[in-house]
Amino acid sequence: MSDPNRKAPDVTDTVSSTRPAPPPVALVNPANRNEGAPRGDDEQVLRLEDVNIFYGDYQAVRGVDMTIGRHQITALIGPSGCGKSTVLRSLNRMNDLIPGARVAGRVTYHGEDLYAREVDPIEVRRRIGMVFQKPNPFPKSIYDNIAYGPRVTGMRVSNMDELVEKALRRAALWDEVKDKRKQSALALSGGQQQRLCIARTIAVSPEVILMDEPCSALDPIATSKIEDLMFELSRDYTIVIVTHNMQQAARVSHRTAFFTAEVDEQGERHGRLIEYDTTNKIFTNPAQKRTEEYITGRFG
């Protein structure tokens, strides 16, 4: 798998022969970041092709195909246990941390297979950041929470104070914390902690931000601040968000993917992607009956 010609389309691979030749973005070389990538909403950042995800012998997700566009907010919705969080975690290899988790199929980032043997998951996560359900600041100062990422990733930062300020401003947190940057992040409110987690993610300049139900532990006011922030961030970042809250998906996202759990012939439950379209279409005129039932609250 580690031969130097791997970026050339492999003709024996039927899937790769049908897709456009990927731009060569080497995950192993940070210097190539964003090189030659034109800004445009049509460009695909992430692409899932027949993705199946297993936990041990149990297949959690079956046959997912979707593409995620640049500078868009893509929402993954669906009832509990439909595999949407599992799919999200497969996009930056956070599933690697779960013993027994395995991804089959292809997940490509700018055309490069994220699960190829020579891909470094550490490097993947530097490009594709993640914000979690429960705010999880480090038990350190606000400043150190933000400086941690740039420090561990070895970013060459000439002025860390400036970088911290920029990240906090970008996450709409600066005005609230500028006088207490050296204080513990655990003293912040839940909503502030979550914005700090977003600021922390931005500080390592990822291209994509994955958000796993980022507002489910927050009150409505904090939620609305995060939603405003997401919309603002989508000018510069590609965002994928998992949410239980359909209104939230409808409010913030450009495209929506509806997942649900299906029982197969052996009686096992698998998460499946049912419908994926623009958010407007999904919420006003879904093609699938199950989508409509879920949207209108008749099941799930």
Binding site: M94, L97, I122, M130, F138, V152
Partner: peptide, 23 residues
């Protein structure tokens, strides 16, 4: 030590050693 702390560190691109040693 909560798993969420480790996850946060990994999600920022930290290695296992960095996560263990620093967090």
């Amino acid at each position: 030590v909560p798993r969420s702390i480790r996850q946060a560190s990994y999600a920022l691109g930290a290695t296992r050693w960095q996560t263990t040693w620093r967090q």
